[in-house]
């Protein structure tokens, strides 16, 4: 019964407990959604009981229509996210690496960044109608800044001693980017990716609702206008589940890529001692 042997199970138990509490909260929320329409607080016509929604969802999952819409949304999300990450990382490294470029672009970036992506809907419709490109414009515009701003901070964070070490060993510009700047920036980039992944999903759905491009968002607006409220809620719940999965995935990726970083390595370092 010494400290080292009891500590890991205690920690495991704490993690398990937190997880159980989270599940408990979800069950409580589902119960609330079940009871509120049933006791007549809200008309079941506008908010059907939870169990009814879940039955409708199970039925939708059997249709090809659902999976086509799901595929369209995920395609727009993934494409938009990849474009934002690549563009944000490359442009961030170029701008962040030069004092001149950084000071020249700072005010422009601060001007463009707060413009809401939805303000670009008229432009997107004008250019591409209800094509995938319209959704991509909104998704990329919203998530690009999330990545760029983080990368700009990350490039600034390079340790002067690390930089001088690299220089003293004759590493050229490319080698410095690859072996010093990129790894220093990676934690920032991963934060940007996590934020961008969530924002990209929101904008993909928004665009499908507002512009009527193919995807889950369009199913939501069409079922709503067709009076199929139950199915509409089923689709809303699906978007929520995708959001959770995206966030969990982004965090898992972060832990994997940044195993060396102080924010993640603490536990493993203690074990090694």
């Amino acid at each position: 019964m010494t400290a080292p042997t009891t500590k890991p199970p205690a920690k495991l138990k704490a993690g398990m407990l937190a997880w159980l509490r989270g599940v408990g909260g979800l069950i409580g929320f589902a119960l609330l959604l079940e009871i509120v329409p049933r006791i007549g607080l809200v008309s079941p016509n506008y908010l059907p009981p939870f169990s009814v929604i879940m039955v409708a969802l199970a039925k939708e999952l059997m249709t090809a229509n659902f999976w086509r819409a799901f595929g369209d949304t995920m395609q727009a999300w993934a494409l938009g996210l990849v474009i934002s990450i690549v563009a944000g990382a490359v442009i961030g490294i170029v701008i962040g690496g030069s004092n001149l470029l950084r000071t020249m672009t700072h005010s422009t970036i601060e001007f463009l960044r707060p413009i809401p992506s939805v303000a670009l809907i008229p432009l997107a419709v004008l250019l591409f109608g209800t094509q995938l490109e319209s959704t991509l414009i909104l998704v990329v515009y919203a998530s690009f800044w999330q990545v760029l701003i983080q990368v700009l901070y990350g490039v600034q964070d390079v340790d002067p001693v690390a930089r001088e070490t690299a220089r003293s060993y004759g590493l050229g510009t490319w080698a410095q980017i690859r072996y010093v700047i990129w790894p220093t920036m990676l934690p920032y980039l991963m934060t940007g990716v996590r934020l961008a992944a969530a924002v990209a999903l929101i904008l993909a759905i928004t665009s499908e609702i507002a512009i009527d491009t193919e995807g889950l968002g369009r199913e939501i607006s069409q079922t709503e206008s067709g009076g199929a409220v139950t199915i509409m809620y089923a689709y809303v719940i699906v978007t929520g589940i995708i959001g959770v999965v995206v966030n969990v995935g982004a965090r898992a990726l972060e832990r994997r890529v940044l195993s060396w970083h102080p924010s993640i390595r603490l536990d493993s370092a203690e074990v090694a001692r």
Partner: peptide, 21 residues
């Protein structure tokens, strides 16, 4: 510039070694 025939050992080893390698 930094010559290939020279190597430097810095005081701050924790910052001079790359933690990601």
């Amino acid at each position: 510039g930094p010559p290939p025939a020279m190597a430097v050992v810095f005081q701050e080893y924790g910052r001079s070694l790359f933690p990601w390698m």
